[in-house]
Amino acid sequence: PQVPQCKALYAYDAQDTDELSFNANDIIDIIKEDPSGWWTGRLRGKQGLFPNNYVTKI
Rank of each mutant, 00 (worst) to 15 (best):
Q2S: 08
D13A: 10
S21H: 00
S36L: 06
D26C: 00
N25P: 01
A14S: 09
W39I: 09
N53E: 12
V55Q: 00
C6S: 04
L9C: 08
N23T: 14
D29L: 06
T40F: 04
G37K: 02
Y10P: 02
C6H: 01
D13G: 06
N25H: 09
A14T: 05
R42N: 14
L43G: 02
Q2A: 11
N23W: 05
Q47I: 08
N52G: 15
I58C: 04
Y54T: 09
K32L: 11
A24F: 11
Q5S: 12
D29F: 05
G45P: 00
Q5C: 07
T56E: 15
F50W: 00
T17K: 09
R42S: 09
F22A: 01
F22S: 02
I58Y: 06
P35E: 14
S21C: 08
Q2D: 14
Y10C: 10
D29M: 08
I30W: 00
F50Y: 01
D29G: 04
L43M: 15
G45A: 06
N52C: 04
K57W: 04
T17W: 11
L49Y: 15
K46N: 13
S36N: 05
S21T: 13
Q2K: 12
Y10N: 04
P51V: 00
P51C: 06
D29V: 06
K57N: 10
A8C: 09
Y10F: 10
V55S: 02
A24E: 13
Y10Q: 13
Q5V: 12
T17V: 09
W39S: 10
Q47W: 11
L43E: 03
D13C: 11
P1A: 15
G45E: 13
G48M: 03
N53D: 14
G48R: 03
R42K: 15
W39F: 11
G37S: 03
I31R: 03
S36T: 12
S36A: 11
L49K: 15
A8I: 00
G41N: 01
D13R: 09
G45I: 03
G37F: 02
K57D: 06
E19H: 15
R42H: 10
D34A: 13
D16F: 09
I30K: 00
E33S: 05
R42I: 05
Q5A: 08
N23Y: 10
K7M: 11
D13Y: 08
T56Q: 12
S36K: 15
W39H: 02
A8Y: 02
L43C: 07
W39N: 05
N52F: 14
Q5K: 12
G37D: 05
L49A: 08
L49M: 06
S21P: 06
D26K: 00
K46Q: 08
L43H: 15
Q5P: 02
D26L: 01
Q2H: 08
L49W: 10
D13S: 09
D18N: 13
F50K: 00
S21Y: 02
K46L: 10
L49I: 08
K32G: 11
G48P: 01
D34W: 12
E19G: 14
K32D: 08
G45V: 02
P51Y: 05
P1V: 15
S21I: 01
K57A: 06
Q15F: 06
T56W: 11
W39M: 06
Q15N: 15
